[in-house]
Design a protein around this nucleic acid. Structure first.
Lengths: 238, 238
DNA sequence: TGCTCGTAACGAACATGTTCGTTACCGTCG
DNA sequence: CGACGGTAACGAACATGTTCGTTACGAGCA
């Protein structure tokens, strides 16, 4: 960004730019994503958008993963939390909220992967956690169990979406899929009898059906499994 | 790698090198990992090790994620599957196998992340799937449900390990953790009453305890949740 | 008014993943 | 015996993430 033919002194001519703040960076990132796709949201592209150099961004954003997590939190504003406040069985409503969450993730699986690395801690994510906790409480789940349960549910949703990363994206997805089915089918009955016996059943079911089943299993499981008596003091998980 | 001072004609002098095959590449990758750490296992470093250029590797390995997945499969040879064949309750034994699996992952969280992207399909991974399926069958879990269940269990294990990626690694882990606790504690009682009420409980429990609880919840859940009648033909999950 | 100094921003650099067009080898055919 | 063609391998290039030392700016002070 030197004094080339283009934009000789753009900083003066466009004082509307947010002047390098974290919120501004994230906003610009979201905008670039909406107009050019997530893969174009690179540090350099973003710096160009903000009329600066890549290095400057690192003052406000630790790395690309954190940036993506911030973008994700922005998108999480679209999660339909009202599903939790409607009528009907609390389990069904919980399923509704989780489904809404995962629908957002499925649109940008790469973001889900970032969310696994740099866990989102934005307002929208907290809203989601709050909604899930409220539903669990309504279902009579003990607080300690709900605390672990919300983690379990959201981790499952996030990682399921993350898993789809390369599968859905572009071409080559079908190749991957074919390769996987091939490997499973080729499993010798000698070494892997159960795999061979199950065959295609391992891969059966459409995405949504498996997803719903998974959520229901998780809910049932956490309802049935008490946490080990005292949940000691908080500390680094290691 | 031109005719510089070093190794003018190394290819002739070291005919022992595996001469560029996928197995050889993966073997070299594992060796580099063991001696210099995973972060040093880069395409360039690997090419140098094999006395070739980075581009040549792409004939046998699609990308870095796939390479890492291949490495992981190699490490999965260390999973203690014999735990599944010992005596005692099948659930306990299943827990033992899963724990052994996750112990391997926890040593190299970055690999777990790759496994989410490029799902491993090596022999050792199939062995693991087979062992889990055998235990589920022993527990009387219906085949269709076991097929989905093994996916659920392994996805949980893998993503839990992947989540630790940046946390454990090096310094900065503590920073992240502090930031997270800070955010949760700062949750206003107005907007997020349940979060505020739970407080530290959300972060309570040591890693192993939470992990064990998660596995048990998953097992209970899949035992309690029937799959939707017919599990149609296999197809792309979308 | 002129100087100093702390901080935000910057430019340049390095290592990485990945791709592209080209080259060198080797068995095959005329 | 010599030309051909296919395939494995290669070198160079490009875009990316990230870091480092340096610069420019503006507030506070002499």
């Amino acid at each position: 960004m030197r004094a080339d033919a283009k934009e000789p002194r753009s900083r003066r001519e466009r004082p509307a730019k947010p002047a390098l703040t974290r919120a501004g960076i994230v906003a610009a990132a979201v905008e670039v994503m909406r107009s050019e796709g997530l893969e174009r949201v690179t540090m350099r592209r973003l710096a160009q958008e903000l009329d600066t150099g890549p290095a400057s961004l690192y003052v406000y954003v630790a790395n690309t993963a954190e940036l993506h997590a911030a973008i994700l939190d922005e998108l999480l504003g679209a999660v339909d939390l009202s599903a939790g406040r409607a009528g009907g069985d609390w389990r069904d409503r919980l399923l509704g909220v989780l489904t809404s969450y995962i629908e957002v993730l499925f649109e940008h699986p790469a973001l889900a992967r970032s969310a696994l690395v740099a866990r989102p801690s934005g307002d929208h994510y907290l809203d989601l956690v709050e909604a899930v906790l409220a539903l669990l409480a309504e279902g009579g789940v003990a607080p300690a169990r709900a605390a672990w349960g919300v983690d379990l549910l959201l981790l499952f949703a996030t990682s399921t979406a993350a898993e789809q990363s390369t599968r859905d994206q572009d071409a080559g997805a079908q190749d991957d899929w074919d390769a996987l089915t091939g490997v499973l089918r080729a499993a010798s009955a000698d070494r892997h009898p159960h795999i061979a016996a199950l065959g295609d059943t391992l891969l059966s079911g459409t995405g949504p059906a498996r997803l719903t089943w998974g959520f229901q299993a998780l809910i049932s499981g956490l309802l049935a499994t008490p946490v080990p008596d005292t949940t000691g003091p908080p500390g680094r998980r290691s």
